[in-house]
Computed example of a mutant assay.
Amino acid sequence: MQTALDHLRQDPVLANLIAITEAPKPAHAHDDIPEHDRLYVALLESIVSQQISTKAADAIFRRFRMLFSQTAEAEGYPSPKQLSEATVEDLRTAGLSFQKIKYMHSVAEFALTNSLDFDYVQSLDDEAIIAYLTPIKGVGRWTVEMLLMFVLDRPDVFPVDDLVIRQKMIRAYDLTETGRPLIRRLHDIAQPWQPHRTLACRYLWRWKP
């Protein structure tokens, strides 16, 4: 951590931001889930959380897990086979939309025919993981980048499509560009942060201008 901070502080804007911002907490997500299933469960949770508040997503995901509490092969969540066989009607009772049910079934189908084993996916580089997982319906680049940062603990992820990251960087660096020129400028600013862009982004998320 200290080596990463020393590197990031070479950017004077980021150095000032780090100085006034509480340090991010450890990024490991789903420590309560067996390692080999963490990506699978994280993908399901990411789909549930799309376009709704964290509080609503937590409630729906809790109800979703409860649907399988008596029969789940793993504690508290369904195996891919169980999820693929769950009916739309049953899943709707957890508060899931028809579209999200379609996406969750897509995760289950992917897991039945491809490996979501933590060690296997961890063996791939970042771009290979993005290419591997984005064929799943409802899973885009941003979703995989969040998995890279918070589940796989990859140190050099820059989710330029994240609206909050864009807004914070525009504010911190007094940017006036829009559209493609803005994206190029954001990449230019973040390039010197390598290989610690994940930590820089976590500070940007926590920073309160």
Rank of each mutant, 00 (worst) to 15 (best):
E73I: 12
A74S: 15
E75V: 12
G76S: 10
G76I: 07
Y77E: 02
Y77V: 07
P78F: 04
P78H: 06
P78Y: 01
P78V: 02
S79V: 05
S79K: 04
P80V: 00
P80H: 04
K81H: 12
K81F: 12
K81G: 10
K81N: 10
K81W: 12
Q82L: 04
Q82P: 07
S84G: 06
S84E: 13
S84T: 06
E85C: 07
E85L: 13
E85S: 12
E85V: 03
A86E: 06
A86P: 03
A86D: 02
T87S: 15
T87Y: 12
V88C: 13
E89K: 15
E89F: 13
D90S: 15
L91N: 01
L91V: 02
L91P: 05
R92H: 13
R92A: 14
R92Q: 15
T93P: 05
T93Q: 12
G95E: 01
G95C: 04
L96I: 05
L96S: 07
L96C: 05
L96P: 02
L96V: 11
S97W: 09
S97V: 03
S97N: 06
S97D: 09
F98K: 15
F98Q: 15
F98I: 14
Q99C: 08
Q99D: 07
K100T: 01
K100D: 09
I101Y: 00
Y103H: 09
Y103I: 04
Y103E: 05
M104Q: 11
H105E: 08
H105G: 03
H105D: 08
H105R: 12
H105P: 05
S106N: 11
V107M: 02
A108H: 04
A108P: 08
A108V: 04
A108T: 05
A108N: 07
E109H: 12
E109Q: 14
E109D: 15
F110D: 00
F110I: 03
A111H: 03
L112Y: 00
L112I: 03
L112E: 11
L112N: 10
T113K: 12
T113D: 12
T113S: 14
T113R: 11
N114A: 11
S115I: 10
S115L: 06
S115W: 11
S115D: 07
L116T: 09
L116C: 09
L116I: 03
L116W: 08
D117S: 11
F118P: 01
F118E: 10
D119L: 11
D119Q: 13
D119T: 14
D119N: 14
Y120W: 12
Y120V: 11
Y120H: 13
Y120P: 00
Y120N: 05
V121F: 01
Q122E: 15
Q122H: 12
Q122F: 11
S123D: 08
S123K: 03
S123V: 07
S123F: 09
D125N: 15
D125Q: 13
D126I: 04
D126R: 04
D126Q: 07
E127G: 04
A128R: 15
I129D: 00
I129F: 05
I129H: 02
I129W: 06
I130V: 14
A131C: 11
A131S: 14
A131H: 13
A131M: 10
A131N: 14
Y132I: 08
Y132K: 08
Y132D: 10
L133M: 06
L133H: 01
L133T: 00
T134K: 09
T134F: 00
P135W: 02
I136G: 02
I136L: 03
I136D: 03
K137Y: 08
K137V: 10
K137L: 13
G138F: 01
G138C: 01
V139W: 01
